[in-house]
């Protein structure tokens, strides 16, 4: 098996774990953690394709991964801010109990 296939399989596994976490957990913070895991798995794919691609000196995959890390950081900040705001309003972070958008 080529090394690239190994990295792709690990990335697929981490993506599936993150997706399972985002879809099955009740706590909103853990759903965000699952989304972060999925973004990280995508980054691993980008870096692996950059490393084994034909033109690594062009830095495209690396740049994509760096920008993706920055976007993920912004997403985490806004997401956790929203969770804190919702908790202040509804006194819960349980997603099964958050069933209306009006306060």
């Amino acid at each position: 098996m080529s090394p690239l296939a190994g990295y792709l399989l690990v990335a697929a596994l981490i993506f599936a774990i993150g997706l399972a976490g985002a879809l099955t957990r009740r706590n909103a913070i853990l759903v965000l953690i699952g989304i972060e895991l999925m973004l990280n798995a995508a980054n691993l794919n980008l870096i692996a394709f950059w490393r084994y691609g034909p033109h690594p000196e062009a830095l495209t995959g690396m740049m994509f991964a760096i920008f993706s890390i920055a976007v993920a950081a912004a997403e985490a900040a806004v997401g956790l801010g929203l969770v804190i705001s919702i908790h202040r309003h509804a006194k819960t972070t349980d997603l099964d109990e958050m069933n209306r958008m009006k306060g």
Binding site: A12, L13, F15, A16, I17, L19, A20, A22, L23, T24, R25, R26, N27, L30, D94, L95, D96
Partner: peptide, 20 residues
């Protein structure tokens, strides 16, 4: 009280397994 997993955990697990 109702556990850490949502009521529809089976469907979520199935979707994740299918994606993998």
């Amino acid at each position: 009280k109702g556990g850490v997993f949502s009521k529809t955990w089976l469907a979520g697990l199935a979707v994740a397994a299918a994606i993998f």
